[in-house]
Design a protein around this nucleic acid. Structure first.
Length: 889
RNA sequence: AGGCACGUAGCUCAGCUGGUUAGAGCGCUUGCUUCACACGCAAGAGGUCCCCGGUUCGAAUCCGGGCGUGCCUACCA
């Protein structure tokens, strides 16, 4: 390549270069996966599908970039890269966004209107329009498609080297098919069941949710001291935060060793206001230290109630409806016993229809005004409620506390398999390793099977129908499952085999399961979705188990966990060999960035303000698993690095063009000067370390080592060899310098390519670009020390350090005298050991020419140097400015 | 309440399989327009390595106990 063909801009323009290379990469299909290459030579990524219904977060840019850096390294190793991208578009977040965006709500009973179109700029958007289920799903699809385009644009801007032909969306037909196949496989293996059970329920979304989606929130509440009358005389006081559950009380329990209550065990108590007889029972979970040591078991206040109720065999008394309002059961009929049904029912009527919060207020009034018993001797509410702050369980996306409500749900067996799942987790390599502990703790702490079903619309339906018996009741005990070949199906529009459409919802006919799956029930099969499990066995086995799963630590309990569960269910395997757990971006006060705190920088803003390379540099500086403070200065540093790379490369190219040498035909055999040999030796270490660290997914450490070496190369090596490189007379020395320069800059460009792919590609295009894989730096081969195996080792290991030390001291003298670094030096006297003299000998000419020391101006004296120094140096500068000679030789 | 991590220069972070005088970048101070780069270069100031014990010839590093921060989990009558 001659100099004429090069058009190197004076300054590097990131915006221009990045736009150019993005387009070129797309055209060349540089990031395409090749299905013909075997597993051993393929690097497979289980890319997280971001939730498109929210805006992306700088944390996403941060962690996705980290993955891309790892991938780009693997690509340079020559691996075939399988790097898909998905969009998580089903689920509650999408429904909520669609409702607000279009001002609509799903009303499943309405018929489909084929002419209805959603509109985001309706005048009367605050007036909610009810639409059919199918129209609602269509609206969801329209908005998510728009969101996905915006996401794709962002990922392209940041330069993710994903294969855009491997795109999927969790709501698309393919994902539905895999999710349903996965479900049917669980059916075949007896791993799922449907049953009516008390399940955590969000009263606003009106859906069941799973343990993994629960979070605690510290909220205000009140302790109420309520007196219960004991059958046959006596009383006790219960302290409760949930007096509205009084009608749902089925028992009271105290610890078996609690002397205060032992006398009551076996007797019955009467609930205030309702006078329902409830057994007084000993139970281990009652803590004598807490409250009054005796507590109500209600159906259902919390998970303890549920667990105790299961063991007790007592009937449930459900008083909270699916909408979070109090229902009015009739006392006097089982299971709502009462000594005084008339009084119980009149009290119940006062509560009926109220929300939990309203009911609590009402019942406190009633308790305050009424006596607990018919004889009037017992006050029910013993004191004013005492305010407390206590943690309460919420759906992570919900606004009101969760209730336990018995509903029919699909569950996947988890509790039976804890040991196996722990073992699977141990087979995965977690990066950083301590993240495995989080997985272990989560699995050990699980107390419920996975509730798979959600009473929502925009999601993957269960491929299930139920027969309807003669009386018109669905027979949930004998579900009709879809054939695998039929998938994907929607049981609300498709028919089970052997039935016809007219039989839908008719006695003797069938009914479709109305629920959709938990969004994680789709996300957890992303490896199978990408590998086409059960659809294309060859492809599946060519990709599975995958190499890496990148994700954040907050979803170890959901995404990582469920993915491990399903891979084990289906094939007894781990889904991936490595879990790369990224840290969070936190603000200056080390708080997690979140919209509600108003401390969010948007990714779009980030990428208009800074170049993609600068953003990528920022992300690459942070190690896996380490939360990092958002610091704008890192972008500046990244920018500087790019500029420096550009300029250093320009410098090297200049020398090759001037001497008519070809960068693509480096003559490494010409490297013979001791300083050059020393540099090559330094870079051998840099290459080995970077490779070792990249192999361990320690891209940040690799970057740090490369960066340090590069700035040293620029500040010291380039200065030291300048005179020799420009020399007209020392052709051997010049050839050695140029070959070293060419190889070094090529090495640096490659080492930096995964982190700053745009500027390195730009440089590559006018330096080393060639045919085949060498058309792009990103498919060129990762540097190895074998490239320079024929370059001899430096004779003196300390030569480089000696050169740096003497150079530094000459520079220091000039700086101290406030003179230019080009200022002429009359004499330099170095004092040191013979060892130091020997180290310096071979590189002395380079040092003296770089320091502009006059001919014959150097003297070495044997003697003692300061501790930690190779030599002491005294420098005498010229009295006047003398222009330096161009050719020092 | 338990677990996991973190606490090093004004800031962001390395170092932590124990070993001369604890590092980098940014910021700050002082110089230098130098033939790749002033988005540069050189030099400089700046640290009770959170605290208290212990092990050791020697501790930022290992052990014990605190304190502080973040996250996860549990309890939550």
């Amino acid at each position: 390549m001659g100099s004429a063909s090069r058009a190197i801009p004076l300054k590097y323009s990131a915006a221009e270069a990045e736009a150019k290379w993005r387009a070129v990469w797309d055209e060349n299909g540089l990031h395409r996966w090749d299905p013909k290459i075997d597993r051993a030579h393929t690097f497979v990524v289980d890319t997280p599908p971001p939730t498109v219904s929210g805006s992306l977060h700088v944390g996403h840019v941060f962690s996705y970039t980290q993955t891309d850096v790892v991938v780009r390294y693997q690509r340079m190793l020559g691996k075939n890269i399988f790097y898909p991208i998905g969009w998580d578009d089903n689920g509650l977040p999408t429904e909520r966004r669609v409702q607000n965006y279009f001002g609509i709500r799903c009303a499943p009973h309405l018929p489909y209107d084929p002419n209805w179109k959603p509109s985001s700029d309706r005048q009367d958007k605050d007036k909610v329009v009810e639409i059919s289920r199918r129209n609602f799903i269509e609206a969801c699809a329209i908005l998510t498609a728009e969101d996905e385009k915006a996401f794709e644009k962002l990922w392209r801007t940041v330069g993710l080297s994903v294969d855009w032909s491997l795109q999927y969306a969790t709501i698309d037909k393919h994902c539905q098919r895999i999710s349903q196949l996965s479900f049917l496989d669980l059916v075949a293996k007896g791993e799922v069941y449907n049953t009516v059970a008390p399940t955590m329920w969000d009263v606003d979304f009106r859906s069941a949710i799973s343990q993994a989606e629960v979070e605690d929130r510290e909220i205000g509440g009140h302790f109420h001291d309520i007196s219960f009358e004991v059958e046959g005389g006596g009383d006790f006081t219960i302290a409760t935060t949930r007096p509205e559950l009084l009608p749902a009380c089925i028992a009271v329990v105290a610890h078996p060793d609690d002397a205060r209550y032992q006398k009551f065990f076996g007797k019955r108590a009467y609930t205030p206001l309702f006078e329902a007889p409830v057994p007084i029972v000993a139970a281990e979970h009652a803590d004598p230290e807490k409250g009054s040591g005796i507590l109500m078991v209600c159906t259902f206040g919390d998970i303890m109630d549920v667990q105790w109720w299961r063991k007790s065999g007592l009937p449930a008394r459900q008083v909270i409806g699916l909408d979070g309002r109090i229902v009015a059961p009739v006392f006097g009929n089982a299971p709502f016993d009462s000594r005084n049904p008339a009084r119980a029912n009149s009290n119940m009527q006062l509560l009926a229809g109220l929300t939990v919060k309203q009911a609590q207020k009402k019942i406190v009034e009633l308790l305050a005004h009424e006596n607990s018993s018919a004889d009037g001797k017992h006050k029910a509410l013993l004191a004013d409620p005492k305010p407390i702050m206590h943690p309460v369980k919420f759906y992570e996306k919900g606004d009101r506390p969760l209730e336990f409500i018995p509903t029919r749900q699909w569950f996947q067996k988890i509790l039976d398999h804890k040991e196996a799942l722990l073992a699977q987790g141990r087979k995965v390599e977690w990066h950083p390793a301590f993240m495995q502990t989080r997985y272990e703790h989560w699995v050990q702490g699980l107390n419920q099977d996975w509730c798979l079903s959600r009473q929502r619309y925009f999601g993957v339906p269960f491929p299930v129908w139920y027969p309807i018996d003669k009386s018109g009741a669905p027979d949930y005990g004998h579900p009709l499952y879809a054939d695998k070949a039929q998938l994907p199906i929607d049981p609300l529009t498709d028919c089970p085999t052997g039935y016809s459409t007219e039989q839908r919802d008719k006695p003797g006919g069938f009914t479709g399961d109305p629920d959709v799956m938990d969004t994680w029930a789709t996300s957890c099969v992303t490896p199978q979705i990408a590998s086409h499990w059960q659809l294309d066995p060859a492809r599946h086995h060519g990709l599975f188990p995958m190499d890496v799963r990148p994700q954040a630590h907050d979803i170890i309990r959901t995404w990582a966990f469920y993915t491990i569960v399903r891979a084990w269910n289906h094939e007894g395997q781990i889904p991936w060999k490595n879990a790369l757990i990224s840290g969070f971006i936190v603000d200056k006060d080390r708080k997690k960035m979140s919209k509600s705190k108003g401390n969010v920088t948007t990714p779009e803003g980030l990428l208009t303000e800074h170049s993609a390379d600068a953003v990528r540099y920022w992300a690459s500086r942070a190690r896996l698993g380490v939360d990092t403070a958002f610091d704008k200065k890192l972008f500046e540093i990244g920018n500087k690095l790019c500029t420096k790379l550009f300029n250093a490369a320009k410098f090297v190219v200049g020398h090759f063009d001037r001497t008519n040498l070809d960068l693509n035909k480096l003559d490494l055999a010409a490297i013979c000067e001791p300083l050059d040999l020393a540099l090559v030796e330094k870079l051998r270490t840099v290459i080995s370390e970077a490779t070792r660290n990249f192999d361990r997914f320690d891209y940040a450490v690799a970057l740090q080592g490369t960066e340090d070496a590069f700035w040293n190369f620029c500040d010291h090596y380039l200065e030291l060899i300048k005179v020799r490189a420009y020399s007209e007379s020392d052709s051997t020395g010049r050839a050695s310098a140029l070959a070293t320069l060419g190889w070094s800059i090529r090495t640096f460009i490659k080492l930096f390519a995964p982190v700053v792919p745009f500027v390195t590609e730009e440089i590559w295009s006018w330096t080393f670009a060639g045919e085949g894989r060498d058309c792009s730096v990103h498919t060129s081969s990762w540097p190895t020390i074998e490239e320079v195996e024929n370059v001899e080792r430096p004779a003196n290991a300390k030569a480089f350090d000696a050169a740096l030390e003497l150079t530094g001291k000459i520079r220091g003298a000039k700086t101290a005298a406030q003179k230019s670094l080009r200022w002429e030096v009359k004499s330099v006297t170095a004092t040191g050991s013979s060892e130091a003299e020997e180290a310096l000998r071979t590189v002395l000419a380079d040092v003296l020419s770089a320091g502009n020391v006059v001919q014959g101006g150097f003297k070495f004296v044997r003697g003692e140097a300061e501790p930690g120094q190779m030599f002491n140096v005294s420098v005498i500068l010229a009295e006047q400015w003398v222009a330096p000679a161009r050719d020092a030789s």
